[in-house]
């Protein structure tokens, strides 16, 4: 039972993790992209469509990544170039993604794909408990975990990571160092869209092997919320995303066990948990928030930090 919940946590957490990692980078550059959900949706559709058309799940995931990236450029143009309000722009991009995918996704609803299936890793997959819990996932799920480590190394061990963080904290510093803050922001937004696109493609090509309109069902928005929970750290994003996925897997397992609790109350658990964690973490980790975000989140949080 526990191993199936852990495995479920990883499965359900992986699409959120991809998007969350992308958003960590975006927010490290001092931006908040609520359009992440939209990028996930276009990624899910493009991933499914290309997989259905070519038979190659790899091409599908690449297409999903590119689609997510393209949509995030709309956000980039409005938020970076035109200096529009980021939260409103993000919401507009989200609804745009919704509309685009509803329009172009119609003919893909009843198509079948082979997609990406769980890998059987010799020895590891067969270890009692540990194998079933951790090593019966598909390759994308492992990739998400590896990406988290790579991004952590990038942020804290490379020059470019430093430039990114400088841009998000004090753009003057990056500017004085000879870097264009806007270029860094563009790169961060594009990467965020790409990762959200991969997360969406994971949902359609590896997890469910289906496309349905609106299939991200709020996971992109949750990913943005989880960035705060993760204190803008790629490694903590892993924990945050799996906790969210775990809450979902747990509530299904509790139901299957016949626990006498309202299934609707249980369905709220992942979201309640996210809220509760935001409430707690928001208070004591606010000092790690990139300075640049204070303009986005408004004066209230800036004051409480000071």
């Amino acid at each position: 039972m526990l191993e199936s919940i852990i495995a479920g946590a990883i499965r359900a957490g992986t699409p959120v993790l991809f998007a969350c990692l992308g958003e960590v980078i975006v927010e490290r550059a001092g931006l908040v992209n609520l359009g992440t959900e939209g990028s996930m949706l276009v990624g899910a559709l493009a991933g499914f469509a290309i997989t259905a058309g070519t038979g190659s799940a790899l091409l599908g995931v690449i297409a999903g990544a590119l689609a997510g990236l393209l949509l995030s450029l709309v956000f980039g143009y409005l938020a970076i170039q035109r200096r529009a309000n980021q939260l409103a722009t993000g919401l507009a991009v989200l609804t745009l993604g919704n509309g685009i995918t509803a329009f172009f996704g119609r003919s893909f609803v009843n198509q079948q794909i082979h997609g990406i299936n769980p890998l059987h890793i010799p020895i590891l997959s067969d270890i009692p408990f540990v194998g079933a819990a951790f090593f019966q996932q598909d390759i994308m799920a492992y990739l998400a975990g590896i990406m988290a480590v790579v991004l952590w190394l990038f942020l804290y061990r490379t020059r470019w990571g430093l430039v990114l963080r400088a841009t998000g904290e004090r753009e003057e510093v990056a500017y004085a160092g000879g870097y264009s803050p806007n270029r860094v922001r563009w790169a961060a937004v594009a990467f965020g869209g790409l990762m959200a696109g991969v997360g969406g493609a994971y949902l359609s090509v590896a997890y469910t092997l289906n496309w349905i309109e609106g299939m991200t069902a709020g996971r992109g928005v949750v990913a943005v919320a989880l960035v705060i929970f993760a204190s803008w750290s790629p490694l903590q994003a892993v924990f945050a995303s799996y906790l969210f996925g775990g809450a979902q897997a747990l509530q299904l397992s509790l139901q299957a066990d016949g626990v006498d609790a309202s299934p609707f109350l249980l369905s709220m658990v992942p979201y309640l948990l996210t809220l509760a964690v935001l409430l707690v973490v928001g208070r004591w980790r606010r000092n790690v928030m990139p300075e640049g975000l204070k303009a986005v989140f408004g004066s209230a949080s800036a004051r409480s930090v000071a």
């Binding site: 039972m1 199936s4 495995a7 479920g8 499965r11 359900a12 699409p15 949902l203 997890y207 469910t208 289906n210 349905i212 299939m215 069902a217 996971r219 979902q248 897997a249 299904l252 397992s253 139901q255 299957a256 299934p263 609707f264 369905s267």
Partner: peptide, 21 residues
């Protein structure tokens, strides 16, 4: 198992895996 949604493929997939387990 209730999914509290008429059509959420990710939840449906997870529900199948939960039942199999």
């Amino acid at each position: 198992v209730f999914t509290a949604n008429w059509c959420d493929p990710a939840k449906q997939t997870e529900a199948v895996k939960t039942l199999v387990a």
